[in-house]
């Protein structure tokens, strides 16, 4: 049987693509945090990032591929598992399963929807027609990403969409990160509670980090 046809093989692919996605989230968060340095920070960062198109596009394609593989196997495994348990019990009791664990496919799909919106919003700049960074250079002639982000997150509707999606991400990761270790066999009786705590901590760090940007703008801590 081919590795990708086996049950554990598919799980390993979920875990490995999961690791890549979590790593990306950290890098992306560090990049985004330059907004706290004002226009000097984020506009310079955005310009630097886009000064090497082949690298940017290569990176984007690889991330998209990893994301696609993760989703493909997620849907396949979830449908498979539904079929393996066609009938439940009349008394529905859970002894150990958590809300975040049972909703992985739903929080995942929320993340997918969000990623599409996020790309339309800040990358392709289709859903933020009131301000397109590339046609509004700042004083140094760079696309004014700072202004685009501030104007967006000052809108409560946009800030709320982001907050909701980040909550879904926090739930996804609070089950997902500790799952990585179990799936890859890097777990044991001694490590298990520590790994669960680590998963929760990473989920919190990432979600609080990402939330801090729309929150700071809504609260007026960062403004134009």
């Amino acid at each position: 049987m081919r590795f990708i046809d086996t049950s554990i093989g598919k799980k390993v692919i979920m875990a490995v693509t999961g690791i890549a996605l979590v790593k990306f989230l950290f890098i992306h968060l560090i990049g985004n945090s330059t907004i706290f340095l004002g226009p000097e920070g984020i506009n310079a960062y955005a310009k630097g990032l886009h000064s090497l198109p082949p690298i940017v596009w290569g990176f984007r394609l690889i991330m998209l591929l990893i994301f696609g593989i993760h989703i493909y196997f997620a849907v396949q495994l979830t449908l498979d598992n539904k079929k393996a348990k066609p009938i439940g019990y009349s008394v529905d009791k859970n002894l150990a399963a958590t809300f975040s664990g049972k909703t992985m496919i739903w929080t995942g799909l929320i993340i997918l929807g969000f990623v599409i919106y996020h790309l339309l919003h800040f990358t392709l700049q289709i859903t933020s027609p009131y301000f397109i960074a590339s046609s509004h250079p700042d004083n140094f002639g760079r696309p004014d990403v700072f202004k685009m982000v501030i104007l967006s997150f000052q809108k409560i509707s946009i800030a709320l969409i982001y907050a909701l999606s980040i909550t879904a991400l926090a739930l996804h990761l609070s089950h997902g990160v500790q799952s990585i270790f179990q799936t890859l066999g890097l777990n044991g009786d001694y490590l298990m509670p520590k790994i669960k705590a680590l998963g929760l901590a990473l989920a919190l760090i990432l979600s609080i980090g990402y939330l801090s940007i729309p929150a700071a703008i809504q609260l007026g801590i960062i403004s134009l």
């Binding site: 598919k10 150990a96 992985m104 179990q182």
Partner: peptide, 23 residues
């Protein structure tokens, strides 16, 4: 089905088989 690391099995097992064996 495939394991999604819910650990319901360990909680139900009458013999205390642990999910660390799944790892």
């Amino acid at each position: 089905g495939n394991c999604t690391n819910h650990y319901e099995c360990q909680a139900a097992c009458p013999k205390g088989i642990k999910v660390s064996f799944i790892a």
